[in-house]
Amino acid sequence: MSLLKLEGITKTFTSPGGRTVYAVNGVDLEIEEGETVGLIGESGSGKSTVGRLAIRLLEPDAGTVTFAGRELGGLAPRALRRARSEFQIVFQEPFESLDPRLTIAAIVAEPLINFSPALGRAERRTRVLEALEAVRLPAAFADRHPGDLSGGQQQRVGIARAIVARPRFVVLDEPTSSLDLTVRAAMLELLADLQETLGLAYLFISHDIQTVRYFCRRTAVMYLGRIVELGTTQQVIEAPKHPYTQALLSATLSVDPDERPPHYPLRGDIPNPTQLPPGCPLVGRCPLAIPECEAAPIALSAVGDGHLAACLRAGEALPATAAALGGTS
């Protein structure tokens, strides 16, 4: 049985103009105990919304979220609050996610106060210091405020808060995208170590394919509220079947100046999510689109062992650009 199971999750918002925006449109996803699933997408893909729906920081309009066999939608507010000790989140914005008026110790202690009210003050302090040590922050930081810390240190506090109550699952919502390259690498090392020692399962949300490729066992690719491709990271990134995945991967720039794979450009920008076609969301930008793509929703279907793609022409090669890459030298 999987640890987390999303089935047919849909979430709409109302735009200021009163129109319905599909942020997430019928998403199914399962995460096993202790595994890392990557969720890749560009802005507007709904990936962060999926992360919040998975731990019920948002209520889905339709569909169910089952965590460790319990449907979260059926829980009363108090029971849901108690259940939260098992699933946590680390946010993209390290500073904004920490209350500026609290000390680091008070921030990290908050889950313990809520989830283990029986814990004494001294015991709580010990647990807080342990968590700070686990994220490799000096104990002296305990009595400082978030504003005194660097971005990387703030994100470590965010991680300490997420793990202090010993959850089984953590949503990592772009935890490294606001950080510098060398800080980001250290953060990924830390997250990998914590996963090993604490046996955590992660949903790793990112727009950076290189990071997901490095960090995740399985990967889902989202575009305009739908998962368009899902499989092991190797399947999805080394043999992508959906045209969007292919285009996204080919837009990634290698740091090796001699590694210049072909580029498969999509037409135009990501469209406005208030005017979605009933069929494939990529239809207006896809070089492979045929009339059937527009008519009806396209379900994920198997293109390999455990490898799914939502495309009528899955696996067909995209036309590459004529323009050769490379500098003038």
């Binding site: 108690r82 946590q88 809520n114 989830f115 109550a165």
Partner: peptide, 11 residues
């Protein structure tokens, strides 16, 4: 965001 974080930590 930190209020969202507080809700996530069971406040």
């Amino acid at each position: 965001r930190f209020v969202e974080a507080a809700i996530a930590t069971g406040c």
